[in-house]
Design a protein around this nucleic acid. Sequence first.
DNA 1: CAGGATCCCTTCCGATACTG
DNA 2: CAGTATCGGAAGGGATCCTG
Lengths: 123, 123
Amino acid sequence: MVRICNYGFDKKVIEEHRDIYGIAYTQNIISGRYKNLIIWYLKENDRRYNQIKKFLEGVSQGSLTKQLRELEDDGIINRTIYPEVPPKVIYGLTEKGKELLPIIDMMEAFGKEHGEQPEEQEN
Amino acid sequence: MVRICNYGFDKKVIEEHRDIYGIAYTQNIISGRYKNLIIWYLKENDRRYNQIKKFLEGVSQGSLTKQLRELEDDGIINRTIYPEVPPKVIYGLTEKGKELLPIIDMMEAFGKEHGEQPEEQEN
DNA sequence: CAGGATCCCTTCCGATACTG
DNA sequence: CAGTATCGGAAGGGATCCTG
């Protein structure tokens, strides 16, 4: 089911143009200020909640938790809880989540090529 | 320069993690409810304002115009005005914009693979 | 036809306080 | 440590009115 929130697309558009369904679906998953970066950060290793939080310095718990839950609901990451004291929660990419890496990889490449010299762009 | 709006990233994050600059830059460009679809729609042919509007049925002029302007400012599309009566404005992808197509292509592929059978996902 | 300007609502996100 | 709950600000997007 396609989320309507996250500035996604509603059924009408999707019904009319079946070929853009995939774009809308994927956009729904990765739209969110930190989602791409979370996925990117989990690329090499599984990480704990606070590691992710530290990596994204500035993010609030509320926002981070919400984004992690949404990614989990979408099957992009999985959450493993170790019932210790203090608690330990490990986040890692699912197989589905790993399939997003090439996309983010290309985003990084695009940005590296075009966004590196900001002041050299003619305004 | 990285826009702070569009739920982008501020300088702090970017300075700290140079490797995620590209992701943030690209995300800034394509974040927006219709931007990916606009780029996708311009893939095959240049289009007029009203063609795009019709394709995205439901979008308001205000939103569409804003997204088109931002894409233009980011060098993704170019706008050609034909001073006729009634006026005619053609939008097309720049070379830089065409480089985004593989990314959107992969988004479509991902969505097609994972988002097609919504009710077969275990909840 | 292709917008510009304005108003308003929704969603996203940060800040803070509190908990097992 | 890893959250939950609540509040409020800011940005995105829709609706409407108006224009060259």
